[in-house]
Every structure is written in C-alpha cells, then in structure tokens.
C-alpha cells in the first residue's frame, strides 16, 4: 500500500530532484565562465613575471645586480646595464625575460634583493609568435594585457 502511494505520488522522483536542486546553490556551482570571469588564483601564484617600478617616481626598483640571471636554472634572464659615471651606480638599460622556457620555479623572485622582479598572478601568457614570448623591459613593467571581455 505504502509502496503504491510512493509510486503514485512520484516520491522517488522528487527525492532525486531534491538532490539535484540542492546542488544548484550558487555557492556550490563550480563552473567558471572563463573569458568573462577570470578565476582567482592563489595569492602566491607564480605566473607572469613583472618588473616593479617605484610608484612614487616611476623609476625602476631594479638595481641591475644580475642575481636573478644567475639564479635562473634555464638562463632566461638577461640584464643589460651601463655604469652611470655621475652616481657610480648601474643604470638598467634592458631586461629580457624569455617566458617560453620558463618553468615558474620562482628562484629569480627569491634571489631578488629589492623585490623588483616578481611572479604575479597573471596567467595568460599565450602568444602568436615565439618572439612574443621574449619579454622586454617595457612588457615586464606593464604586464601582459590580455583581451578583456564584457560579461
């Protein structure tokens, strides 16, 4: 009798639907609408490299010490500098970072004594050419500018 009632009133069906309904809670949705919404990666994520500039005067923080280039296992970093005769300090001329073979181990970031070189949370590094993977100083300071989509 009870079984018959369950069958008539589709109890099993509603129980199943309830399970489905429960996982519809906005908190539980795990699908990411990727190009519109970029996922939030961890704070310590090791992504695109960036050469930090001093926010006050816009000068680079890099002191051309070459430690990042020495720490890099794949020797991807080339630091170009000239000795400034007035201040007796090294002036950064050029900074190239080959992201094509970078494995984002973070050793360059660790080696930097002034926090100038940093691996950021940007993860969109694709390029149409191999040359596009070699980032120069301007690219490193501005960061990659991936296409933005309106959601």
């Amino acid at each position: 009798m009870r079984k018959l009632l369950r069958t008539i009133f589709l109890v099993d069906l509603f129980e199943g639907l309830w399970v489905t309904f429960r996982s519809q809670h906005p908190k539980k949705i795990v699908t990411e609408q990727y190009p519109m919404h970029r996922p939030k990666v961890a704070e310590r994520y090791r992504g695109a490299p960036r050469l930090n500039i001093n926010p006050e005067n816009g000068e680079t923080l890099c002191i051309s010490c070459d430690l990042c280039a020495l720490a890099c296992p794949e020797k991807l970093i080339v630091v170009g500098w000239v000795r400034n005769p007035e201040t007796k300090r090294k002036d950064l001329v050029n900074f190239t970072f080959d992201t094509s073979r970078c494995m984002f181990c973070g050793l360059c970031e660790d080696a930097c004594p002034v926090d100038a070189l940093e691996l950021t949370q940007d993860f969109e590094l694709a390029s149409y050419t191999r040359e596009g993977q070699i980032w120069d100083r301007q690219m490193l300071e501005e960061g990659p500018r991936p296409t933005q989509y309106k959601s």
Binding site: V78, N94, D98, E124, E131, D136, Q148, K150
Partner: peptide, 25 residues
Amino acid sequence: SEEVKPTPPDAGPETPKPAAPPAAA
C-alpha cells in the same frame, strides 16, 4: 561575449622586440 579592447596580448611579428642578446645566448 563581446570584445571591449581589441589589443592583442602581445606585439605581433611585425614589431620585433629590441631583444638584446637572445636569452639562450
């Protein structure tokens, strides 16, 4: 989806980087 800013993610092959010595030198 609608493109808002059509800047390509990187400079194409027509603007070669003033890359100093290639990193693999």
